[in-house]
Write a protein that binds this DNA or RNA. Structure first.
Length: 289
DNA sequence: ATCCAGGTTGTCC
DNA sequence: GGACAACATGGA
């Protein structure tokens, strides 16, 4: 077992809780977690390198990078894994439509993580016109080159996500090792606007989704899809419905009139169920007849 | 080799 | 307003 500096934290989940780490950490919302062959996940959240694991009705976790005082980890985990949101209720809302009901039954272990706003914005800028495997590589190289080294396990180094300030001090040529192509200038524009305070990401949490989107779309390379991903995954705005190629196809085919009214406030979660569902069963979107 | 990927931009009408 | 190529990179 990995050496956790402090005693591992055990969180007992209610029996109604369907949290699945595999679904949550591998559904394309975060690109910073890797599955280990001992059944744990390792990822970097802020300054912490964490391991997490699920065990019948429990979430087990530990911090590998620093000592945690008693009682520090639990609220942190509850927050990051969004354990205080009522996902049972969300799945009930999805039940009003047969397709969403099916998607929710299949992917109901997904929680929307509460990631750092800057990290979410930056990674989804990198995500555009790109596939998940390569996005993961870009994020990794971004962190290796511009993040802070936190610790090394089994020869693998873990880095924090670079701050907007550090990236704002770079140039397009400086970002070359990331190999993110035309997205480099977009990352720089975002980093400059965020680090200068021209855009205050925390303030966006408090204002209506559409206004927040308009502000984010003032960044070069941020259109509606990236803005909605930043808001959904970085600011927990569950009404955001980012439309990528997968969701676009699924919506056209399965919801030509859009989602049902009652789902709209949690459309982002429904969208994520659907995303995971159609990625696992792409034949759903094939032409019948 | 051509197509595509959790899109956006610039340009043309 | 909508349509459409171009944009870097790498895997299928």
């Amino acid at each position: 077992m990995l050496q956790t500096i402090s005693k591992p934290t055990e969180l007992v989940l209610p029996d109604t809780e369907r949290l699945s780490l595999a679904q949550t950490l591998d559904c394309g919302q975060s690109f910073r977690w890797t599955f280990q062959n001992d059944g744990t996940w390792i990822g970097v959240v802020g300054k912490r390198v964490l391991w997490v694991k699920e065990e019948k009705g429990k979430l087990l976790a530990g911090c590998l990078s620093r000592a945690e005082t008693d009682g520090e980890m639990e609220p942190f985990l509850r927050e990051y894994f969004d354990l205080d949101t009522d996902y049972q209720k969300i799945q009930r809302l999805c039940g009003s439509n047969p397709v969403l009901k099916e998607a929710a039954a299949f992917a109901g272990g997904i929680h929307i993580l509460r990631q750092e706003p800057w990290e979410a914005l930056c990674t989804f800028i990198l995500s555009q016109n790109n596939n998940i495997k390569r996005i993961t590589g870009l994020v990794e190289r971004l962190c290796e080159n511009f993040g802070e080294p936190i610790l090394t396990i089994d020869g693998r180094k873990y880095f924090s996500f670079p701050t907007a300030e550090v990236l704002a001090s770079q140039t397009e040529e400086g970002l070359a090792p990331v190999r993110c192509g035309f997205r480099a200038k977009y990352v720089l524009d975002a980093a400059k606007k965020v680090s200068s305070g021209k855009i205050d990401l925390d303030a966006l949490r408090e204002i209506p989704t559409q206004e927040a989107m308009d502000i984010l779309m003032g960044i070069k390379g941020v259109g509606p899809k990236v803005a909605q991903c930043a808001l959904l995954f970085g600011m927990h705005k569950l009404d955001c419905l980012p439309r990528d190629v997968w969701i676009g196809r699924a919506m056209d085919r399965l919801f030509p009139e859009g989602f049902p009214q009652e789902v709209l406030p949690i459309a982002g979660v429904a969208q994520q169920y659907l995303f995971h569902y159609v990625r696992c069963y792409p034949e759903i979107l094939e032409d019948e007849k």
